[in-house]
Design a protein around this nucleic acid. Structure first.
Length: 425
RNA sequence: GGAGAGAUGGCCGAGUAGGUCGAAGGCGCUCGCCUGCUAAGCGAGUAUACUGGGAAACCGGUAUCGAGGGUUCGAAUCCCUCUCUCUCCGCCA
């Protein structure tokens, strides 16, 4: 959420910056609504002030018959207040739901652009592997090796669900452990294991609601949602809190499964593990002092990159343009890993600085010093990494001409020493 | 699932025949004094949001005692609904 006062004082500039996201104005009607709200507020509060002071007099008067006329008068005032409050509530609600649908301001360093095409290459690491034979896509590799069973996944649940078996299941678990160990031991994150379902307030705190309910899996009875990313429960750890400045920065990493409806992506990536309704991810989340968030995005992105480097998977870093960054994000770097089976780079991590956008929604604050007013922290997060897609990258990059797949050296201790996943006899 | 208890400020904890309660007291914290260290002592201060005025310091208004609604001139205090926490019983990975 943006700061209402900031919008009020900088309406044109805010509008201009928001337009870089998609062109259309996102602030229509703000001024009228804001003025209406403040007028109602002012009038209502004046009446309440009157009622409070007169009620005080009534309270002090022992003989109520002396103030009978005042009581009658206040009865009418209270009626008026009630009417005005109702109107104000409506306006407040309108304002609130309006504010919740306004996306974050793009960061000054976010490239201006309208689509994916305008994303900017920041750097790349490793050479895209040129295989000496025809690359096989991971879905075929996985099925041939008997480690990915798409048919049975679909039978058990439906499309975009997959059954992992044997070395495949082990490989997924190995990746999880490698990532968690790296981020906790080497990068200083505290591991957390949060709930995989969250309530509506949490979804609103990080920005998934109210706008993107269609993308979520929702429970029928309690009003809970399956998390689409660990960002939601982990960022909401500190919802409604005032943190100590000395606690910052706070760095969490978490493994969770992620559940996404993928509505609107029918026909896209229908084969393989790239786009699933359920996938595993290790997420990095930071709460930092506002002056630190720019630098924190760089280090956080570096932490995600480190996983790819350890696995020796070629990748590139893209700065998303204003038209491509997410609703809550001010600045985003995507890590894209090279996939020989598709001869292209595919997103494997998304690292974002949200500025104070999520912190304002979720009310996560700190004090500069003991007496200072609370200020909003800045929040960041990034995938470190999407595990399913990492497994895809390993299968495709480490595939051998005989159809087997080498296990990256760094993973072998996690795989019971296994060096190669071979075809079943 | 059944029975009961409870939710007050950073923490603990008063406050139920409705008014002078944004809320006693204690702890913690901040500033000052005192004490040649430490501790103790003394004094003052110490919630948040919105809103009006002011360059600012700051001053004023409104709201908030789990959430929402009701009764009333007036509610932390009465009534209703919901949520959460705790205890006991049952069930269970």
């Amino acid at each position: 959420m943006l700061d209402m006062k900031f919008i009020r004082d900088n309406l044109d500039e805010t509008d201009r910056r928001l337009r870089t996201r998609g062109g259309e104005s996102l602030l229509d009607g703000f001024r009228e609504l804001d003025e209406k709200r403040r007028t109602l507020l002012k009038e209502g509060e004046a009446l309440k002030a009157l009622r409070n002071s007169v009620s005080d007099v009534i309270g002090r008067t022992k003989d109520k018959s002396q103030v009978q006329d005042k009581i009658l008068e206040m009865r009418e005032v209270s009626q008026k207040i009630k009417v005005m409050d109702e109107e104000l509530n409506q306006v407040d609600e309108q304002m609130n739901s309006f504010m919740l649908t306004v996306p974050n301001l793009p960061h000054a360093s976010t490239p201006i652009g309208s689509s994916e095409q305008d994303n900017v290459l920041v750097r790349s690491w490793g050479e895209p592997k040129q295989l000496s034979f025809a690359a096989i896509a991971h879905w075929d590799l996985g099925e041939n090796l008997g480690i990915l069973d798409f048919e049975r996944g679909a039978k058990i649940t439906g499309a975009r669900f997959t059954l992992y078996r044997g070395a495949g299941a082990r490989l997924e678990r190995a990746l999880l452990n490698l990532m968690l160990d790296l981020h906790t031991d080497a990068h200083g994150y505290q591991e957390v294991l949060p709930p995989f379902m969250v309530n509506r307030d949490s979804m609103q705190g990080t920005g998934q609601l109210p706008k993107f309910e269609d993308d979520l899996f929702k429970l029928v009875d309690p009003d809970f949602f399956l998390i689409p990313t660990a960002e939601v429960p982990v960022t909401n750890i500190h919802r409604g809190e005032i943190l100590k400045k000395s606690d910052l920065p706070i760095s969490y990493c978490a493994y969770t499964p992620c559940f996404r409806r993928e509505a609107g992506s029918y026909g896209k990536d229908t084969r393989g593990l790239i786009r699933q309704h359920q996938f595993n991810k290790v997420e990095l989340v930071k709460f930092v002092h506002p002056s630190e968030s720019d630098a924190a995005l760089e280090t956080l992105t570096g932490h995600a990159e480190k996983v790819l480097q350890l696995l020796e998977l070629p990748y590139r870093v893209m700065a998303l343009c204003s038209g491509d960054i997410g609703f809550s994000s001010a600045k985003t770097y995507d890590l894209e890993v090279w996939l020989p089976g598709q001869s292209c780079y595919r997103e494997i991590s998304s690292c974002s600085n949200f500025g104070d956008f999520q912190a304002r929604r979720a009310s996560i604050r700190f004090r500069e010093d003991e007496k200072a007013k609370p200020e909003f922290v800045h929040t960041l997060n990034g995938s470190g990494l999407a595990v399913g897609r990492t497994l895809v990258a390993i299968l495709e990059n480490y595939q051998q001409e005989d159809g087997s797949v080498m296990v990256p050296k760094v993973l072998r201790p996690y795989m019971g020493g296994l060096e190669r996943i071979t075809l079943p006899n």
